[in-house]
Computed example of a mutant assay.
Amino acid sequence: MSMREAIAAYVHDGDTVSLEGFTHLIPTAAGHEIIRQGRRNLTVVRMTADIVVDQMLAGGCVSKLVSSFVGNSSAGSLGELRRRIEHKVPEPLEFEEYSHYGMVCRYLAGAQRLPFYPLRSYAGSGLTSVNDGIRKVVSPYPAPDGGEEHVYVVPPVNPDVTIVHAQRADRAGNTQIWGLTGIQAEAVFAAERAVVVVEEIVDDEVVRSDPNRTVIPAHAVDAVVVCPRGAHPSFAQGYYDRDNAFYRAWSHISKDSARLRGWLAEWVYGTRDHEEYVARLGEAFWADLAVGDAWSLPVNYGRRL
């Protein structure tokens, strides 16, 4: 599908939408299309809420955020998110906060259709006082000393739709990722619907030649969208580098509400699609983000003679 078709078909007002990609392969172009189509009252689930979430907030798309980290990826703050949480301007944002691993466990529980997932890392944490979704249960097994053991648990998350970005897929949706991976596969399996955005579609033989890179199998995918450079300003290993200048600039853009809305007017509402966004930046800009070759050595998987 085109990005426009996929968002129209699979993202609806009031949905819970997961956007995953950890520093790498962030589905920014999908977030922009959600803004263009004017989706409202979304619950956004993203382990590391960053620039794309800030932009969707400014676009009026998000009423609730579920996340474990909010910030401009080591380059500063998210101005729109801070206005919503700290000052309730222009309206309040419901924020449900977990740790990184707490979010991982929520996806694991959702993907496996479990009622909860146990973890130890909340012992002594202040998060339990601000999030009543983090609870404590008695282990059904005795502790080493024979007594009761109490374990923290988190609930599953089952998004209406998960959207991820990846390097490549075949036409069936077998999706391959390399480099820095996150929780994409679990987020896809946890969801009712899944949209995979890729840098390119490749022939079946390419995927079959290196099956261990297939992180998401076709049967879990509802739509494949080809969108080159669709992760900008994040990076796609082997395709283009991270746009660090944009990350640094974003803190200044988002700090000023009027300037942020001006940016949206020019770069999101003012472009028909991501292809126009890419073209407007210009080839000289993309040449600065070009990456050199670093080929992996061949692997002999072997076959019957």
Rank of each mutant, 00 (worst) to 15 (best):
I163P: 04
I163C: 05
V164H: 01
V164Q: 03
V164R: 01
V164T: 01
V164K: 03
H165S: 12
H165D: 09
A166P: 00
A166Y: 04
Q167C: 11
R168K: 15
R168V: 14
R168E: 14
A169M: 11
D170S: 01
R171C: 11
R171A: 13
R171K: 10
R171W: 12
R171T: 11
T175K: 04
I177N: 05
I177L: 08
W178N: 09
W178C: 05
G179T: 00
L180Y: 13
L180Q: 14
L180S: 14
L180F: 07
T181G: 15
T181V: 12
G182N: 07
I183D: 06
I183H: 08
I183T: 08
I183W: 09
I183E: 02
A185G: 09
A185M: 13
E186G: 06
E186I: 08
E186P: 12
A187V: 08
A187Q: 07
V188K: 07
F189C: 14
A191L: 02
A191M: 02
E192S: 15
R193G: 12
V195R: 10
V197N: 04
V197Y: 01
V198N: 01
I201T: 12
I201V: 14
I201P: 11
I201N: 10
D203G: 13
D204G: 05
E205D: 13
V207R: 00
S209N: 06
P211E: 02
P211T: 07
N212Q: 15
N212S: 14
T214C: 10
T214F: 04
T214L: 05
V215R: 13
V215L: 14
V215F: 10
H219L: 10
H219E: 11
H219K: 10
A220L: 05
V221Q: 02
V221T: 00
V221R: 01
V221C: 00
D222H: 11
A223V: 02
A223Y: 00
A223K: 01
V224T: 02
V225C: 01
V225S: 06
C227Y: 06
C227A: 12
C227N: 13
R229P: 14
R229E: 13
H232R: 08
H232M: 09
H232G: 03
P233E: 05
P233S: 08
P233D: 08
